[in-house]
Amino acid sequence: MRLIDWQLAFEQHLLSEAPAANSGFAATLLGGPTLDVETGLAIYHNAYLSRLQEVLRHDFGAIWYWLGDEAFC
Rank of each mutant, 00 (worst) to 15 (best):
G32H: 05
G40Q: 08
L29H: 07
L41R: 09
A21C: 08
T39S: 08
Y44A: 14
G24I: 05
V55S: 06
E54R: 13
L49C: 06
A26Q: 06
A47L: 14
Y48V: 01
V55K: 03
G32A: 09
G31S: 11
L49T: 10
G24V: 08
L41C: 06
I43R: 04
T34P: 07
S23A: 15
E54Y: 11
S50D: 13
P33N: 13
I43M: 04
E54G: 12
L41V: 05
G31F: 12
L52K: 08
G32R: 00
G32V: 04
L29A: 03
V37P: 00
Y48Q: 01
E38T: 14
N22G: 05
A47H: 08
Y44K: 08
N22I: 08
S50A: 13
T39M: 06
L30H: 11
D36A: 11
G40N: 07
L41Q: 09
Y48F: 14
A26G: 06
A26H: 07
E54T: 13
A42R: 01
A21D: 00
L56K: 15
T34Y: 07
I43K: 05
L30Q: 12
I43Q: 06
A26F: 02
A42T: 03
Y48C: 01
F25C: 05
A21E: 04
G32E: 05
T28S: 15
S23Y: 07
N46V: 14
T34H: 13
A26V: 02
F25N: 06
G32L: 03
S50C: 13
S50V: 09
G31A: 09
L56D: 15
R51E: 12
G31R: 08
S50K: 13
V55M: 05
V37C: 03
A26Y: 02
T39E: 07
A26K: 04
A26P: 03
A42G: 00
A47Y: 04
E38D: 14
R51D: 10
D36T: 12
T28F: 02
Y44C: 10
F25L: 09
